[in-house]
């Protein structure tokens, strides 16, 4: 397995951990869950970021992450990254348009402001989770070497 593929796999799982932690944080605020749950979620969020940064730096020797394709090592991987980015960008654009359309419909239905915001938040969360899965799946599909 190439270094790029391993980095994509690692970031996919760390993003999932971060998404679960964010979900618990939001639900904790909404449903007044015990403070322990919120603390654990915050700890999970910080730890997952720290583990990701440490692993990229120490194990995969990533020094700079300014470029959008910092994890690629050659032209084939850059071509894969471009294809995946393009597909994800299209997906995200469609998701945002969908979110705007849904927001407009919900606004017309005259939901309570809190319900409206929560629904939009839930959809945005699903878009983020979907984009994460889409990125991982497409990379796996295109990188068949």
């Amino acid at each position: 397995m190439s270094r790029a593929k391993r980095i994509v796999r690692m970031t996919f799982w760390m993003n999932n951990v971060a998404l679960v932690a964010l979900g618990v944080l939001v639900l904790g605020r909404l449903w007044a869950l015990p403070i322990t749950g919120t603390l654990v979620a915050m700890l999970l969020l910080v730890t997952s970021y720290w583990i990701l940064a440490w692993t990229l730096n120490q194990r995969y020797h990533v020094k700079q992450r300014q470029s959008g394709m910092w994890y690629t090592d050659d032209e084939r991987e850059r071509a894969i990254a471009l294809k995946v980015h393009s597909a994800c960008l299209t997906g995200m654009t469609n998701g945002v348009w969908g979110l705007i359309a849904l927001g407009s419909i919900l606004f017309l239905v005259r939901f309570e402001t809190q319900t409206l915001l929560l629904t939009l938040l839930a959809v945005a969360y699903l878009i983020a989770a979907g984009a994460n899965v889409q990125y991982y799946y497409l990379w796996w599909r295109y990188d068949q070497a």
Binding site: D74, R76, A145
Partner: peptide, 15 residues
């Protein structure tokens, strides 16, 4: 100056 996977992909007509 490329990855081993790239050479493999070229040899197998995948890239």
């Amino acid at each position: 100056g490329v990855t081993r996977q790239t050479i493999n992909a070229i040899e197998n007509d995948k890239y």
